Simulated scan of single mutants.
Amino acid sequence: MQTITEETKKKVVKLHIQDGRTISSLAAEYGICHATVSNWVRAYREECQTNDAAKSEYKLMQENRKLRQELAEAKKENDFLKKAAAFFAKEID
């Protein structure tokens, strides 16, 4: 049985909450049972209910995830507009 450090637990929880990684992918990557990862995430969310520092960190991770998603969407839209502009520029010539 492998010993998991607190640092690794926090890293896995952060990857799930902030980066949107699935519990299944994290469990497979770190060689940990799916239920164990799920328990870590649940325990962290419960800690956020009573610990203001953890609650603040949790909100920052969620906001970071949201902003990353918005940035990715904006990049897709920008790429589309560039292609459309190039297409219409060819039509004019």
Rank of each mutant, 00 (worst) to 15 (best):
I17K: 02
A84E: 13
K82T: 07
K75G: 06
D19C: 01
V13S: 02
K59Q: 11
L15C: 05
E46T: 03
E73W: 14
E6I: 12
E29A: 15
Y44H: 03
S24I: 10
Y44L: 05
A85D: 15
S38P: 02
L67C: 14
W40D: 02
A43S: 03
A35P: 05
Y44M: 09
N64I: 14
A84T: 08
I17N: 00
S24E: 14
H16T: 04
L67T: 10
E57I: 08
T36S: 09
E29H: 03
T22V: 05
K11D: 11
Y30L: 04
M61T: 01
E63L: 15
K82S: 05
V37H: 01
R65L: 03
K66Q: 15
Q2T: 14
L71K: 15
L60T: 06
S25Y: 13
A84I: 14
Q18D: 02
R21Y: 12
A85G: 04
W40Q: 07
S24H: 08
H16L: 04
M61Q: 04
R45G: 04
E63K: 15
L26E: 13
D79S: 07
K10Q: 13
K83D: 13
I4D: 00
Y30Q: 03
S38D: 07
T5Q: 02
K11F: 09
Q2Y: 15
C48S: 14
E73S: 08
E63I: 14
T36D: 01
H16F: 07
Y30K: 04
